[in-house]
Computed example of a mutant assay.
Amino acid sequence: MTARPEPLLRIDGAALAYRGARALEGIDLALGAGETLALLGPNGAGKTSLMRLIAGRLGPAAGRVRVAGADPHRSRAARAVIGWVPQEIALYPRLSVAENLSVFAQLAGIARRERGEAVATGLALCALAEVAGRPVGLLSGGYQRRVNIAASLMAGPRLVLLDEPTQGVDLHARAAIHAVLARLRAAGTALLVATHDFAEAERLADRVAILAQGRIVVDGRLADLLARIRADAPEHEVVLAAPAEPDAEAVLRRTGFLPRDIGSIWRATRLAGPALDGAALLDALRASGVPVTEIRIRAPGLEGVYRSALSGIEAGAGEGRAS
Rank of each mutant, 00 (worst) to 15 (best):
A150W: 00
T121K: 10
R286F: 08
L281N: 03
R115V: 13
D224S: 13
G273P: 05
V238I: 14
R57C: 07
R207E: 10
G26P: 05
R57F: 13
D224K: 08
L8H: 05
R174M: 02
A223T: 13
A223V: 13
D206K: 05
D277W: 07
Q144V: 08
N100E: 00
L302P: 00
M154Q: 14
L153R: 02
R4M: 14
C126Q: 08
T48C: 10
A23P: 04
G316C: 04
A201N: 05
G13I: 07
S152M: 12
R115C: 10
V131G: 02
R145Q: 10
G142S: 12
G122S: 11
E294A: 15
A223F: 07
I54G: 04
T189E: 06
I177C: 03
E130P: 02
P42Q: 12
A275F: 06
S102L: 05
R286L: 15
F104C: 00
A272C: 15
L31I: 11
G59M: 09
A175T: 13
T189L: 00
Q106L: 09
G263P: 10
A233N: 01
G320L: 13
A179C: 00
A155Q: 11
L123D: 03
R134L: 10
G312C: 01
N148F: 01
L258G: 13
S152F: 06
R64K: 13
A227V: 07
L31K: 03
E303H: 04
D28K: 09
L285Q: 02
A241Q: 08
H73S: 15
G46M: 09
H172L: 15
V217R: 10
A173G: 03
W266F: 15
G41M: 02
L125I: 06
I177F: 01
A299V: 07
L50R: 04
A299E: 15
G220I: 06
I149Q: 14
R4G: 11
